[in-house]
Simulated assay, not measured.
Amino acid sequence: MIPGKLEITIKINQLPQAKTVENGWQQFDIDCDRRIISVTVKPKVWKKLTDAQASYPQWVGAIAGKLGQETENRFVLEEPNIQVFERKPKPEAIATAGAA
């Protein structure tokens, strides 16, 4: 058997409802097919999501991290990192909207 590393990537397209915990860190939960993942991020990382919400009409956020401790009804995502991308409409969707 060889050692491996388990990482999880969660994709979102809406700003989660977050609560502020110590030192300005933000904590929020994500429902992934009825499995609740609890995420706590630094203010700098949270800013990526709020900037995307303010700057782009459509966006996608990819939250990656390690599967952490399991609690009563959820998992904790350890060492989360967020990447945000602008989501552009597909060309056929634009053409269909223009023809209507």
Rank of each mutant, 00 (worst) to 15 (best):
D33F: 07
P16R: 04
L15K: 05
S55E: 08
Q26E: 06
T9I: 08
I94E: 03
I2D: 10
C32M: 01
Q83R: 15
G65H: 12
I36P: 02
A64G: 15
I36K: 09
Q26K: 04
K47G: 08
G68H: 12
W59T: 01
L15T: 04
A95T: 06
N23K: 08
A18P: 03
T96E: 14
T9F: 05
L6T: 12
I30S: 05
A64V: 12
V39Q: 01
G24T: 03
V45W: 01
Q17V: 14
P3I: 11
R35F: 05
Q83N: 15
A99R: 15
K19S: 08
E22M: 04
E78P: 01
P89C: 04
K88D: 02
K90M: 07
I63R: 02
E72L: 15
D31Q: 04
V41D: 00
E78W: 15
E92H: 10
T9Q: 06
L67H: 07
W46N: 03
P43V: 07
L49Q: 03
C32Q: 06
N81R: 10
R34A: 13
K48F: 09
Q14M: 05
N23A: 12
A62C: 14
A62R: 12
P57K: 03
K19H: 10
G65F: 10
T71F: 15
P16E: 01
P16G: 03
V84C: 10
D33P: 05
K88N: 06
D51L: 01
Q26D: 02
K48N: 13
A93Q: 14
T20K: 06
K90R: 12
E79D: 14
D29K: 07
W25S: 02
P91A: 09
R74A: 13
G4I: 06
Q53N: 14
W59L: 00
K42D: 00
K44L: 11
